[in-house]
Design a protein around this nucleic acid. Structure first.
Length: 187
DNA sequence: ACCGCGATGCACT
DNA sequence: GTGCATCGCGGTG
C-alpha cells in the first residue's frame, strides 16, 4: 500500500511512479495507466492564483484526494502531492479495469472495457467517486492504492483539454496501453 | 480520422 | 457573463 510519504515529494517525481499502481475505491478499480501533473505556479492548475473554496484540498497535506466537478457534469480525481500546502496534484486520467468490472459496466452503461475508465470523468463514474471523496486520505478506506510491482515503460506527452501551458509534457502513460484516454506519442 | 455541439455547475472577471 | 483539467453523439472525410 502506498503511504503518505510516497506523496510527500515533488509531483514531477510522483506522477510517473503512479503509472502501474493499482487504485481501488470500495474494492472497485484497476491499474493506473495515465496521469497528468499540475504544480505550483502552473497556469493550467486550479491552484494557480491561490486558495479558494474549490481548491482548498490542494493546499492541504499530501496523500489526500482532491475531487472537483468538471463542466458541471463529471467528477475528476487528483492525488495531492508535495511537502504540504504547496498545491501540487496528480490528475488520474485513465485506468485499466481489473476489479469490480461488472459494477463498473453497470455504472457506466457500457460494456467495452476500453471505455470504462479511459478518461478522468469516466473513471470517476466507474468507481463512483464524487465530491464527498474530496479531502479524504488515500491510505484509508474507501481508497486502496497498491504500489506497482515492476517499473513499466512510460511515455510522456502534452496534457489534454487545457489551453494554458498546454505544451508542457506533463502527461504520463503506460506505453502501448489500449486503455488510455487518447493515444500518447512520445514528446 | 477529425470537428462541432449540448449538457450542466460553479469559480472567477 | 465567460470559460473550463469532459463526454457522447452526430456529421463529415
Amino acid at each position: 500500500m502506498l503511504k503518505r510519504d510516497f506523496f510527500a515529494r515533488s509531483v514531477h517525481e510522483v506522477a510517473p511512479e503512479l503509472i502501474g499502481a493499482t487504485l481501488l475505491v470500495d474494492g472497485v478499480g484497476g491499474t493506473i495507466v495515465e496521469v497528468e501533473a499540475y504544480d505550483q505556479g502552473d497556469p493550467a492548475s486550479h491552484a494557480y492564483g491561490g486558495p479558494t473554496a474549490r481548491n482548498a484540498t490542494m493546499f492541504g497535506p499530501p496523500g489526500h484526494a482532491y475531487v472537483y466537478r468538471s463542466y458541471g457534469i463529471h467528477w475528476c480525481l487528483n492525488l495531492v502531492c508535495g511537502s504540504g500546502n504547496d498545491a501540487e496534484a496528480v490528475l488520474i486520467r485513465a485506468l485499466e479495469p481489473t476489479a469490480g468490472i461488472e459494477l463498473q459496466q453497470q455504472r457506466r452503461g457500457v460494456e467495452d472495457l476500453r471505455k470504462l475508465c479511459s478518461g478522468p470523468g469516466k473513471l470517476c463514474q466507474a468507481l463512483a467517486i464524487t465530491g464527498k471523496h474530496d479531502g479524504l486520505p488515500l491510505d484509508q478506506l474507501p481508497f486502496q492504492l497498491k504500489e506497482r510491482r515492476e517499473v513499466p515503460q512510460i511515455v510522456t506527452g502534452p496534457r489534454i483539454g487545457i489551453t494554458r501551458a498546454a505544451e508542457l509534457p506533463w502527461r504520463y502513460g503506460l506505453l502501448g496501453s489500449p486503455f488510455l484516454s487518447r493515444v500518447l506519442r512520445s514528446a
